[in-house]
Nucleic acid binder design. Structure first.
Ligand SMILES: [Mn+2]
Ligand SMILES: [Mn+2]
Ligand SMILES: [Zn+2]
Ligand SMILES: [Zn+2]
Lengths: 144, 144
DNA sequence: ACACTATTTATAAACATTACAATGTAAGAA
DNA sequence: TTCTTACATTGTAATGTTTATAAATAGTGT
C-alpha cells in the first residue's frame, strides 16, 4: 500500500513539473512509511545515514514543495516544531499531553459549525481545525 | 465591566500570592480592555509610553504567570507569535486568512466528539481546540 | 552528451521566546 | 515608618525553528 502511495506521489510530482531527486524520494518515502507525523528535524536525522551531506534546508524546502502540490499537510504548534502528515483522507488528531504522541482520529467534518459560524460572524468560511488533547493509553498506565 | 474584571483579576493574584506591580497591572489592564487578542510584542509596544524601560521579558514572564493563575489563555500558532486572551467563558475563534483578525465565536462545547474520541482511541480526553478559518467581512469587500 | 534550469548545500540571518545574573521593589514584620 | 527579604524587573545572551542567500551540483528534455 505504501508502494502505491509513493508511486502516486511521484506521478503527482512529475505532472507538476517537480524534479525527482534522491533526497525528495527519500523524504517522501519516510513520510509515507511513518505513522508518527514526523518533524522536519526527525526526517533530517533519519536520513543522515543515507545522505550524510544533506542539508536541513533541503528537508524544509521539499516539505514546502510537497505542501504546495498537496501531498503533505503541515500541523503547526506554537511551542515546538511543525509536524508533517501525508494527506489521504481528511481526519482529525488526538494528541497526548504527556508524551506528545499524535494519533489519527476519523470523524465527520464539522459542517454545521462552519455554517453557523458563517451566519453569526459574516465571515466566508473556508476551513477549520480541531484537535483533541488528553493522555494516551501508555501514559495512563505509567501514571498511577 | 472592565473595571470589575480587572479588580477580580487582582484579587485572584493576591490570593495566589502573586505581587501586584505597576507592570503587571498595566499588562492586565491592556489585556482586559483589548478585544483583539494581542501578541506579547503588541502589549510591549502599547506600554512603552507608560514604561519606557520595561523589558519584553517582563511581558512574557507575566503572561506566563497569568496563564498559571488561569487569568489568561495562550492561543498558539505555528508561523507567528502567540496571542493572549482573557478567559471569561469558553469560546472558539474564527480567524481571517487575509488580515489575521481573530473574532470570538460562541458555540456549545463539542462533548460528543470528545466522548467518541475517548472510546475510539483509548485516550483519556481532557480538552480540545477548534478554530475556524475564512475571510472576514472587511476583507471580502476589499476583494471583489 | 549538452544546455538549461531547478535543486542542493552550507552558512548566515530572522524571529519568537527563554535563561541568566544583577538590580530594584512590593509587602509583611518589627 | 522603616527594615527585610523574597520575588520581580531589566538588559542581554542564548536557544530553537525556520527562512534567505549564493555558489556548486545534478535532473531532464533535446
Ligand atoms: Mn494524521
Ligand atoms: Mn477570544
Ligand atoms: Zn502519551
Ligand atoms: Zn480580514
Amino acid at each position: 500500500m505504501a508502494e502505491e502511495k509513493l508511486h502516486g506521489a511521484i506521478e503527482a510530482m512529475k505532472s507538476s513539473g517537480v524534479r525527482i531527486t534522491p533526497q525528495r524520494h527519500a523524504i517522501l518515502e519516510h513520510l509515507i512509511q511513518s505513522m508518527a507525523h514526523p518533524t522536519a528535524d526527525e526526517i533530517y536525522k533519519s536520513l543522515e545515514g543515507k545522505f550524510p551531506n544533506m542539508s536541513v534546508a533541503t528537508v524544509y524546502n521539499n516539505l514546502r514543495v510537497f505542501k504546495e502540490i498537496g501531498l503533505v499537510k503541515e500541523l503547526t504548534y506554537g511551542d515546538s516544531s511543525s509536524r508533517f502528515d501525508c494527506v489521504t483522507t481528511d481526519h482529525y488528531h488526538i494528541i497526548c499531553d504527556d508524551c506528545g504522541k499524535i494519533v489519527d482520529f476519523h470523524y465527520p467534518g464539522l459542517d454545521e459549525v462552519e455554517t453557523l459560524a458563517e451566519q453569526v460572524t459574516g465571515f466566508q468560511v473556508g476551513d477549520h481545525r480541531m484537535e483533541i488533547y488528553g493522555s494516551c493509553p501508555d501514559c495512563q498506565k505509567n501514571k498511577h
